[in-house]
Amino acid sequence: MSRRSAHRAPAERSPRVLLAKVLLCLGCLVGVSGVGTLAFWTDTATVPTGSFASGTLDVTVNGLLPGQGGSTTLSGLSMSSMVPGESVAANLTIAPAAGTLPLDYYLTATATGTLATDATGLKWTVTQGTAGTAQGSQASGNRSNTCSGTVLASSVALTTGSTTLVGGNTAAQRRDVAAGGSETLCVLVTLPSTAANSLQGANGSATLTVNASQMGAP
């Protein structure tokens, strides 16, 4: 009796199995070939800001001196042939220039000449108010004036150095003036009745300085 060969012919593969394998392979190829080829739509938008502009700090005195710096003469605050006991007053209105920032300020003064710097010479009083009507005459030696309102400085003697008359150089001491607002000061200058005899024929004057800064500055 002959033996059958142990070698078996390979089994025929089912057409369905072959088709499934082909489809799987195609899927692998498609998946590999699609990596990095997808497209995404994009867009950008711009958002411009509004415009910016810096403000301006500009102090005016009696409606004068628009722009940075400058000086003006307080012509009403003068008197010739002054004798002890006489006085003169004038108004000083401090305000921000139109369209500029609100401000803080303080007022200082520096004197020149013997009549203004001698210890018995001219004395300076400042009020938050206005000058009254001048009284008396030079011929009678009794010219005088007054200042209304709250007293900010009283009978201060000036020197060649800077003397603070109103406020001070700190935020708490400076006086506020709102944008569009103003503050009127009355400055009264008196030659006391106790003025020294040596002051006859002497002269003197003073320079007032309005030191302004941005409101709220330290």
Rank of each mutant, 00 (worst) to 15 (best):
T159N: 09
A39G: 13
V156I: 14
S205W: 01
G34Y: 12
A20P: 00
V156L: 08
S162E: 06
L92Q: 04
A179Q: 12
R143I: 13
T93D: 08
L158P: 02
N142I: 02
G136A: 00
S205R: 08
C28G: 13
G55L: 06
D43M: 10
L38K: 13
E86D: 02
G149M: 05
G55K: 05
T108R: 05
A6T: 14
T164P: 05
T112L: 06
D104I: 01
V30E: 09
S80Q: 15
A179Y: 07
L74F: 02
L107R: 03
E183G: 03
G136Y: 06
A89C: 00
A109Q: 07
S155G: 13
R143F: 02
S137P: 01
V61M: 07
A212T: 10
G181T: 04
T125C: 05
G181L: 02
Y106G: 00
C25L: 13
T184H: 06
S182N: 11
S75E: 11
L152D: 08
P84E: 04
S182M: 06
G149R: 01
A153C: 01
L101P: 01
T46D: 13
K21A: 14
A53G: 10
G181S: 13
T114M: 01
G31P: 03
T110A: 14
A217F: 03
T100Q: 07
S2Y: 10
S205K: 09
G55S: 07
A45T: 14
D104W: 09
T146M: 00
T37G: 07
A178N: 11
P15R: 15
G67L: 00
L65P: 06
T42Y: 12
P96Q: 01
Q135N: 12
V189T: 12
G85L: 03
L101D: 11
N145S: 14
A196K: 00
G216A: 03
T108G: 07
L101G: 01
T159W: 08
G36Q: 04
N169D: 13
S140N: 13
S78Q: 15
A212R: 10
